[in-house]
């Protein structure tokens, strides 16, 4: 059923890598922000001696930025492909519609792993001893988070009218979610309604799960956030399958 998935995903990976700006935003930006903020506040939740206590875990922020840039990029690509008739052309081939969209998910997950590898290398280089999480678990937490936020990206991509609006609309949806994610201040500090809203957002569960895994907790201790991410994925995938426009 997913015939052609790997061929298309590999092709889209190469195509994405040919655009310098996309690569810089996806691979470069989160790492640069990580290094700069890590220098100022400390990395991995540990403060720099003599500086103020780290207000948040810089590594988690960087991971969240990796997810956000993947989703913004996905929304833009979907809008551009739709406007250019590329989605229509692909859909007229024997490729299944789900295969065409899944290929982009595979590409984004691949670049997420590459970005995370860069982040780890930077951590080892610049902040020795500060980055102590279980990396395999953390990678899995990030991938699950990205998958869930990507599904929301498909919903956003369904409603953006034209390619010109893709970036601004995507940013307007995602950045407030980052603010509300619990990374900068505890969710409990929010007014009651906003707290409920926050727990309906994939970013909030993503931060909670990644922080929990970072701190050494097992997956069993965070099943609620895993379930939250999975539920949001299921809901968004169902909505997108109804609302996604191919042309």
């Amino acid at each position: 059923m997913l015939k052609g998935l790997w061929a298309l995903a590999w092709l889209e990976t190469k195509i994405f890598a040919r655009e310098p700006m996309g690569l810089v935003g996806t691979l470069g930006l989160p790492v640069v922000i990580f290094i700069l903020l890590g220098r100022a506040f400390g990395a991995g939740g540990r403060s720099v001696p003599g500086a103020a206590q780290a207000p948040f875990n810089v590594a988690i922020l960087a991971a969240l930025l990796i997810a956000v840039s993947a989703v913004l990029s996905l929304v833009a690509i979907m809008a551009i492909y739709r406007e250019g008739g590329i989605l229509k052309r692909l859909r007229a081939t024997p490729l299944a519609p789900l295969t065409i969209l899944s290929a982009h998910v595979v590409v984004k997950l691949g670049f997420t792993l590459a970005s995370l590898a860069l982040l780890m290398a930077a951590g080892r280089q610049f902040f020795p001893g500060a980055m102590t999480p279980h990396w395999l678990g953390f990678s899995a937490a990030l991938l699950l988070s990205v998958l869930s936020i990507l599904s929301l990206g498909f919903v956003v991509a369904s409603v953006v009218p034209t390619a010109r609006f893709a970036q601004p609309v995507g940013a307007a949806v995602l950045y407030p979610m980052v603010v509300l994610s619990g990374l900068f201040f505890p969710i409990e500090a929010l007014p009651r309604t906003l707290e409920v809203v926050a727990w309906g957002l994939p970013t909030t569960h993503a931060v909670a799960l990644m922080q929990g895994i970072w701190d050494g907790g097992g997956w069993a201790a965070h099943w609620d956030h895993v379930a939250g991410l999975a539920t949001i994925f299921a809901v968004c995938a169902a909505v997108a399958s109804k609302t996604f426009r191919w042309e």
Binding site: L11, E12, I15, R18, E19, Y81, G84, G85, I86, K88, R89, A92
Partner: peptide, 13 residues
């Protein structure tokens, strides 16, 4: 075999 009006391909393919 189908050729569409106004349908392109990826810029960098």
């Amino acid at each position: 075999g189908v050729q569409h009006q106004d349908a392109h391909l990826q810029k960098r393919i």
